[in-house]
């Protein structure tokens, strides 16, 4: 820890702690997940940046979607995202969540993940190498520092719009709006 960081820690401990303790929920949708084991094990060792995988969305604050998103998966992604506590950051990994990738004309995958949940950053490539994950992380750090990694706030503000997009795909989601509070959920219902 260098000296100018101490001032930052004292100023906003929560923000700094969020930055250096990214507990990741890896949503293993497609082929992208194959790159994650090298990231978290001996070769690249993500733990030295404080990034470890966790098993449930309740414990994490980094949500990484590693591959194409089929319609059925999207439901699980939305629910998992809504179950993560604030603040939380989403990163799309690989081409598919960005624009559909090689599944761009598939009837059963979505093309733009950020229409359904807010995404704070993308890692482009098919496949991105593990190094790219670290570049993304350092970039996310900068965004957190500047206060620009505000996906969770955007989701709260524009929940009605997000919910509308979600319900355009699924006529009826299987659960009532869990998030963020009843009044906004009611608004989304209208």
């Amino acid at each position: 820890m260098d000296r100018n960081q101490i001032a930052k820690w004292l100023k906003s401990p929560a923000k700094m702690a969020n930055k250096y303790s990214l507990h990741a929920v890896y949503f293993c949708t497609g082929c992208g997940i194959i790159e994650i084991p090298p990231v978290i094990t001996t070769r690249w060792d993500a733990e030295r940046f404080g990034i470890i995988p966790v098993a449930t969305p309740r414990q994490g604050n980094l949500f990484m979607i590693t591959g194409y998103v089929s319609l059925k998966t999207l439901k699980a992604i939305i629910r998992t995202y809504e179950q993560m506590p604030d603040p939380k950051y989403t990163v799309g990994f690989g081409s598919c969540p960005i624009n559909g990738g090689m599944y761009w004309d598939s009837y059963n995958t979505i093309k733009h993940l950020d229409r359904y949940i807010p995404v704070d950053g993308w890692i482009a490539g098919c496949m991105p190498r593990p190094e790219a994950v670290f570049i993304a992380i350092t970039h996310l750090w900068t965004l957190i520092d500047k206060g620009k990694a505000d996906g969770y706030l955007r989701y709260q503000e524009n929940y009605a719009a997000y919910r509308r997009n979600q319900e355009m795909l699924f006529a009826e989601l299987e659960w009532p709006p869990l998030y963020p509070c009843d009044s906004i959920a009611e608004e989304a219902r209208k």
Partner: peptide
């Protein structure tokens, strides 16, 4: 109680 972790499903 319905808002419980179930690996993403309801």
């Amino acid at each position: 109680q319905e808002d419980s972790y179930a690996a993403g499903s309801s």
